[in-house]
Structure formats: structure tokens, C-alpha cells
């Protein structure tokens, strides 16, 4: 595993790997998301009619839950890549972190948007300071900070190192933030808004949900490979330009 990771440090080899892997991840993403959407929106049963159940609104979870999962998964990827870059000086680490962070921010934003749509229907309010929504909002802020720090320096390498440290600080802080938001929420919010012992998810809904989760994950890897390749190309252009200036 580690030998294979080290082999990818060579940009040309990474380019070959990306070219071979891209069709697979792209097609798997398209297949999973397509099948999951059709199954989830047209075939899976709706929830019990309101006011007891969620009716057709329940279908939002086929986008909401995978996005929420991805927003956390991508942050873990950014942190792992940053650790790889800081500890083993893996040249691909900074590139992967830089490429993945905006994608994660988009997933966090998608989670917030779909959560707010769902809330408008179920809670009668576009935004409620619910513990989970609030945590995702803070995660979104952490992404924004990471992206801003990456691009704040004239020297991209300096920005990449600073952002890598910030990503690791964020990982240590995320559980603390999550815990304190939960605590704050139980103190301030009436517990009736979200029923903790809601009905268990129907097996009919679970299958499309998992299809969507796999689809979103493959989609992320597709975009990550594309973006990482573009970053590598941009680095090479920059180096060539600098050499031309020096000559």
C-alpha cells in the first residue's frame, strides 16, 4: 500500500494512473447516481402522509444524506492528504488537499441547502439551529478558511503548507465543536423538533440510499482525479513560465 502510494509521487505515473482510473470512477458514479435517483424518486415508497410522517418530502434524503456523508468524508481525505504531505513530504498530498477542499465545501453547502428545504416543509422554517445543521454550517466555515488560506500567499507552496497545518488543527477541533454544539442544542432547543426515536428507515429506502452514497463517493473521486491532474498541469505551467522569465 505505502509503496504504491510512494510510486504515485511521480507526476507522470500519477497521470497514467488517473487516465486509467477516470473512466471507471466516472461510469460507476453515473450508474450509481442514475439508478439511485430513479429508484429513490419513482420506485421507493413515500413516507407516511403528514402530519404523522414525512410524505414525499422524505425523498430529499437521497441527496441530503449522501451529501452530509461526503462533506465529512472529504474533510477526512483533506486531513489525511495534509498529514501525508506534512509527515512524509508526499508531493501529491498538497495537490490532493487543494483539489478536494472546494469539492467538500460544495457538498457541505448542498447538505445545508437540502436540509433547509426539508426544514421548510417539516418544521415550517427555512433554518432551525438544530445541532446537526449547525455542525455542518461550522464544517462549511472550516472549508472556507482552508480554501482562503490555500490561496492567500503569492507562493503556492507556502499556502499549501499553512493550509495543511490548518486542516489538521480542524480535525482535532471537529469533535470538540460537535460535542459542544450538541450540548448547546440540548440546552436551548425544545427536543420535540426532531424525534430521536423516529421510525427506522424502510429497507425499501435503504437500497437507493446506499446506491446514492456509493455514487456520490465515485463522483468525488472522479472530480478529485480531474482536479488533481489540472493542478499538476498548472504547477508545470508555472514552473515553465518561471524558467522562461529566468532565461
Amino acid at each position: 500500500m505505502s509503496a504504491r502510494l510512494h510510486a504515485l509521487a511521480n507526476p507522470a505515473r500519477f497521470g497514467r494512473f488517473a487516465r486509467r482510473a477516470l473512466p471507471w470512477t466516472a461510469w460507476l458514479a453515473a450508474l450509481c447516481i442514475g439508478a439511485g435517483l430513479v429508484w429513490g424518486v419513482f420506485i421507493a415508497p413515500p413516507g407516511a402522509p403528514p402530519p404523522e410522517g414525512q410524505g414525499e418530502t422524505v425523498r430529499i434524503i437521497y441527496v441530503h444524506v449522501p451529501s452530509a456523508w461526503m462533506s465529512l468524508f472529504v474533510y477526512a481525505c483533506v486531513a489525511a492528504a495534509s498529514a501525508g504531505a506534512l509527515i512524509w513530504r508526499h508531493p501529491l498530498g498538497h495537490i490532493v488537499a487543494r483539489a478536494a477542499s472546494p469539492v467538500g465545501a460544495c457538498f457541505a453547502l448542498l447538505t445545508l441547502a437540502t436540509g433547509s428545504l426539508w426544514g421548510a416543509k417539516m418544521w415550517g422554517a427555512w433554518w432551525v439551529w438544530d445541532a446537526r445543521l449547525t455542525s455542518v454550517l461550522i464544517l462549511f466555515f472550516l472549508y472556507l478558511g482552508h480554501i482562503a488560506l490555500t490561496h492567500a500567499f503569492d507562493d503556492p507552496a507556502r499556502g499549501a503548507r499553512a493550509a495543511a497545518i490548518l486542516a489538521l488543527v480542524g480535525v482535532v477541533n471537529l469533535p470538540i465543536i460537535k460535542f459542544s454544539v450538541d450540548w448547546w442544542n440540548t440546552l436551548h432547543q425544545p427536543a420535540s423538533i426532531i424525534r430521536r426515536d423516529g421510525p427506522a428507515i424502510d429497507a425499501q429506502m435503504l437500497a437507493p440510499l446506499f446506491l446514492m452514497i456509493f455514487g456520490f463517493t465515485f463522483y468525488f473521486f472522479t472530480v478529485l482525479l480531474l482536479r488533481a491532474r489540472a493542478e499538476l498541469a498548472a504547477l508545470r505551467t508555472r514552473a515553465l513560465k518561471l524558467r522562461m522569465l529566468a532565461a
Partner: peptide, 29 residues
Amino acid sequence: LVLGARRGGVLLSLLILPLYIPILIFGVG
């Protein structure tokens, strides 16, 4: 982290304020 960055002061608040939330919660609590 922001040493030598463009607009370091504003950037600093973007990086640090989210990390301050737990302290705010327990301090006000």
C-alpha cells in the same frame, strides 16, 4: 499561519472564529 499572507487580518478571523465556538458556548453557558 497567516504570516506573510495577503489580507492577513481578515483571513485570521475566517480561520479562527469557527474554532472559538466551543469556548463561546461554555462561557455563555
